[in-house]
Design a binder for these strands. Structure first.
Length: 290
DNA sequence: GACCAGGTAGCAA
DNA sequence: TTGCTACATGGT
């Protein structure tokens, strides 16, 4: 299955969306290292419903190819149904955000699959972004079933069933460190159905943010990342180290020692698309660093 | 060798 | 509630 989604200029910067550190669920078709400043015209793939989804840009348009039918439409991977102009117009409430938006227009929020996103962010504490990607790739290669399509093999993130027998020791050997026990217990938790994606989808932001923290290793920040990048809770404002220092410096009136108070302040300030504001700010701060 | 990385759990006060 | 601290590993 192939097709083209016609886009206006600035509607989707695929490179930035992939490279800004929000997603660990996509890979390059070329097999080249994922994080690479220079490679701006790559083909990326992920897997959904046991099928491969390949995407690339030609001019402004987004081209896609899938190995078979999938339950999602292509635009949903980057929330293309949301009019970016309106979203960005809404969050540009000060000079900092004006600057971030002007600089990075076209950056989209991903809408990745729930389980891979949860496991990725369970690996994230005290880790650099490229290393998180390496860990997720290792898990994918070691436990996932490859999909062969059109003569090429594609890596697929393992199912919960495929992960059910993985031991904490194996995960540690793969470099996860103390995060191994988080991943192991999360897998058990999900298989037992103690936390269900469908329920998280229905209980609203506050409820879902609390509920998902029943998983060991999920705190306020990881919860917000999973809610934002895989469950579509756009009011989530993950407060990581970058965001904290940015808020402290640029939004002192909203800054507070307490996570919830600060995040609530920012939600009040930025509104329903606070998650977009967070991602633009996060990317902007990281870009300015180097 | 310190120091640090998209934090969290566990424990004391 | 709030305030420590340990936690694994690899890169600079």
């Amino acid at each position: 299955m192939q097709g083209v989604i016609e886009l206006e200029e600035g509607e989707l910067d695929l490179h930035k969306t992939m490279q800004c550190g929000q997603t660990f669920s996509w890979q390059k078709v070329s097999g080249e290292p994922f994080f690479d400043e220079s490679s701006s015209n790559e083909k990326y793939y992920t897997t959904v419903d046991g099928e491969v989804v390949i995407l690339w840009k030609e001019g402004e348009n987004l081209h896609y190819e899938t190995s078979g039918d999938i339950s999602r439409n292509i635009g949903s991977f980057f929330r293309l149904h949301e009019p970016l102009d309106e979203v960005l117009g809404d969050i540009q409430r000060d000079d900092i955000m004006e600057e971030a938006v002007e600089e990075h227009r076209g950056l989209r929020l991903v809408n990745d699959e729930f389980v891979p996103t949860l496991i990725s962010y369970l690996c994230s504490p005290q880790m650099r972004i490229p290393r998180i990607k390496e860990m997720v790739d290792s898990i994918t290669e070691k436990y996932g079933t490859e999909i062969e399509y059109d003569g090429t093999k594609y890596n697929q993130f393992p199912s919960l069933y495929e992960l059910s027998d993985v031991s904490e020791r194996e995960l540690r050997r793969m470099g996860l460190g103390y995060r191994a026990k988080y991943v192991k217990s999360a897998i058990r938790h999900l298989i037992k159905g103690k936390v269900k994606e469908e329920e998280l989808n229905e209980m609203g932001y506050k409820g879902a943010h609390e509920e998902i923290q029943k998983i060991n290793g999920v705190g306020d920040k990881v919860a917000d990342c999973v809610l934002l990048f895989s469950l579509g809770y756009l009011e989530a404002f993950p407060l990581d180290t970058w965001s904290w220092s940015a808020i402290e410096e640029h939004y002192p009136d909203h800054h507070h020692e307490d996570y919830h108070t600060t995040a609530d302040n920012l939600r009040d300030y930025f509104g329903e698309y606070a998650g977009y504001a967070q991602q633009y700010l996060f990317h902007h701060m990281r870009e300015q660093e180097d």
